[in-house]
């Protein structure tokens, strides 16, 4: 450890600085700015030529006005909770759908496993947008799903442009991110543990709930967080599959940015979202540290 060159030790911090801290600082700066009708559409601008006086007037012009506006309008809070609810709901569905898939794959023979994992990942070689558009074709009123339902005499379903449509899209798009961590944990499990449990009088179901499931919890937690965090800020899926009543933060940020041409407000919403997501991100990292430490 001691002989590690200092540059390599700094690398992760450099990475964080360049790809996280600096962009975040820029967004925070934007959120403290004001909108103006100019290019770019916000002020103040940092004037390097003016030296320290420029720096001083720059910082003097920053204020918390945008955050005050966010706090005074309950639409933002409503949008935040609606995002959390939809992402949470999708995470639960993902766990319910993803667990049996991961468990099934882990129980297969070596060759079959490789094929199944490949089958899980393969659709991701197609563009994300095309896959979501495919869902539009499936779910639209005269789409494949309703044609299939009609052919067996069932009434049509309205899924496209509703919250159900958003959930379908989220679960579909994030499924591998739930299945793969679960699979990684389940596949590594020592089968002799199950044998031991059964030798000691456990039924197969009992052995699953007493041995397999508790041991797979780290994978479940990792999968849930990997899915939940990006889903809260998801924009494309609610925009394409959701209805106009689907209120999600990704859309709120889009609206501020484009409809209102209000970069500071869009940035402030983004900062608020990130800060509120830091809690699950930190939880996730601790979880990872635990798994890796094992």
């Amino acid at each position: 450890m001691r002989t590690r060159p200092p540059l390599a030790a700094l690398a992760p911090y450099l990475w964080l600085l360049v790809f996280f801290a600096l962009p975040f600082a820029l967004v925070v700066k934007l959120s403290l700015s004001d909108t103006v009708l100019a290019m770019p559409p916000y002020a103040p601008q940092l004037d390097f030529a003016a030296g320290s006086a420029g720096l001083k007037s720059f910082f003097a012009a920053l204020d918390l006005e945008t955050y005050r506006r966010l706090a005074s309008d309950d639409l933002y809070l409503a949008s935040y909770f609606s995002s959390l609810r939809l992402a949470g709901l999708a995470t639960v569905i993902l766990a319910l759908v993803g667990y049996p898939i991961a468990y099934g794959i882990a129980r297969c023979s070596d060759g079959a496993r490789q094929v199944l994992v490949m089958a899980l990942i393969l659709p991701f070689w197609t563009s994300f947008l095309i896959r979501i558009y495919a869902w539009i074709a499936i779910l639209k009123p005269a789409g494949l799903l309703n044609q299939a339902l009609a052919s067996v005499g069932l009434p049509p379903l309205t899924i496209l442009n509703t919250e159900a449509g958003v959930l379908v899209g989220l679960v579909y798009a994030y499924l591998p991110f739930m299945v793969l961590p679960l699979y990684a944990v389940l596949e590594r499990q020592d089968e002799s543990l199950i044998e031991a449990a059964e030798d000691l009088g456990c039924t197969p179901t009992g052995a699953f709930w007493r041995v397999t499931f508790p041991l797979s919890l780290p994978g479940l937690a990792a999968g849930a967080l990997i899915c939940f965090i990006p889903m809260v800020g998801e924009f494309v899926i609610p925009d394409l599959l959701g209805g106009s009543e689907t209120l999600m933060l990704g859309r709120t940020i889009w609206n501020e940015f484009f409809a209102n041409r209000d970069w500071p407000a869009a940035s402030a919403v983004a900062v608020a979202l990130l800060v509120s997501l830091l809690v699950p991100i930190v939880l996730y990292q601790r979880q990872q540290a635990k798994v890796l430490g094992r």
Binding site: T35, L37, L75, A78, E245, N255, N260, R261, D262
Partner: peptide, 19 residues
Amino acid sequence: DQELLREVNRQWTRVLTGR
């Protein structure tokens, strides 16, 4: 102007989301 635009868009968002 910016104020009116923001107000109109705020009301529009309420229309869209039914709040």
